[in-house]
Amino acid sequence: MTAKMRFAELATVAGIGVAGISAVRRAMSGQRSEDDEAVNRWLVVTVLRSPDEVVADGALPAPLRELGDLVEVQVRPAPGDKGTELAARLTRHEPASAFARLEGKDPRQRVRVALREAKSLLEVGEIVHPDAPATTHPGPLGRLLSRATHIAQGEGRL
């Protein structure tokens, strides 16, 4: 490994550390972050199915139905007649701390997971999970990526 590559890895780790420290300081001081202000934002996925197929027999897809009254769900045609938008948001404000997400106790994570699983079920017929880790590199960035994947708690990407 060259000195330049090692310096780049150390700079990346240091940058992530600084960001983490500022988040912890904000959480400890009681300041509300922009994320806390946006707890009631709609999370939306586009499903490549018609609205009739998404809400078959008037029932929501199982992952969203299981959340019950924790979420409000909207089903509407996607712009340009390109499928259906499936939108969900929390019905009650539950304060989220900087640590709640790391511990897997942020209720928004459950909504994200449910939307991702609903989209997967509707489009593929099963919940799709990645088969292999993104990297097996044993270096600092590989360990950092492994930790980030663990913290994501299966949310995937929206």
Rank of each mutant, 00 (worst) to 15 (best):
residue 2 T to V: 08
residue 3 A to V: 07
residue 6 R to F: 10
residue 6 R to G: 08
residue 8 A to R: 05
residue 10 L to F: 15
residue 11 A to W: 04
residue 16 I to L: 15
residue 17 G to D: 06
residue 19 A to F: 14
residue 19 A to W: 13
residue 20 G to R: 08
residue 20 G to N: 12
residue 28 M to H: 10
residue 30 G to M: 01
residue 32 R to V: 09
residue 36 D to E: 14
residue 36 D to F: 06
residue 38 A to I: 04
residue 42 W to N: 03
residue 43 L to Q: 10
residue 43 L to D: 12
residue 46 T to S: 06
residue 48 L to N: 15
residue 51 P to Y: 10
residue 53 E to M: 11
residue 55 V to S: 05
residue 55 V to E: 06
residue 56 A to P: 05
residue 58 G to M: 06
residue 60 L to W: 01
residue 68 G to V: 07
residue 68 G to Y: 08
residue 68 G to R: 09
residue 68 G to H: 06
residue 69 D to R: 01
residue 70 L to G: 08
residue 71 V to T: 02
residue 73 V to M: 02
residue 73 V to N: 01
residue 74 Q to C: 10
residue 76 R to P: 11
residue 77 P to L: 06
residue 78 A to K: 03
residue 79 P to W: 10
residue 79 P to E: 14
residue 81 D to V: 11
residue 81 D to T: 11
residue 82 K to G: 10
residue 82 K to A: 13
residue 83 G to E: 02
residue 85 E to R: 09
residue 86 L to H: 00
residue 86 L to G: 01
residue 89 R to Y: 01
residue 90 L to E: 00
residue 90 L to A: 01
residue 96 A to S: 04
residue 101 R to V: 09
residue 103 E to S: 14
residue 103 E to K: 10
residue 105 K to P: 03
residue 113 V to P: 01
residue 115 L to M: 06
residue 115 L to S: 04
residue 117 E to G: 08
residue 117 E to M: 11
residue 123 E to G: 02
residue 123 E to M: 04
residue 125 G to W: 05
residue 126 E to V: 10
residue 126 E to C: 09
residue 127 I to Q: 08
residue 128 V to E: 10
residue 129 H to L: 15
residue 129 H to W: 15
residue 130 P to K: 06
residue 130 P to F: 06
residue 134 A to Q: 10
residue 136 T to F: 09
residue 138 P to V: 08
residue 142 G to T: 02
residue 146 S to M: 12
residue 153 Q to E: 13
residue 157 R to P: 09
residue 158 L to N: 02
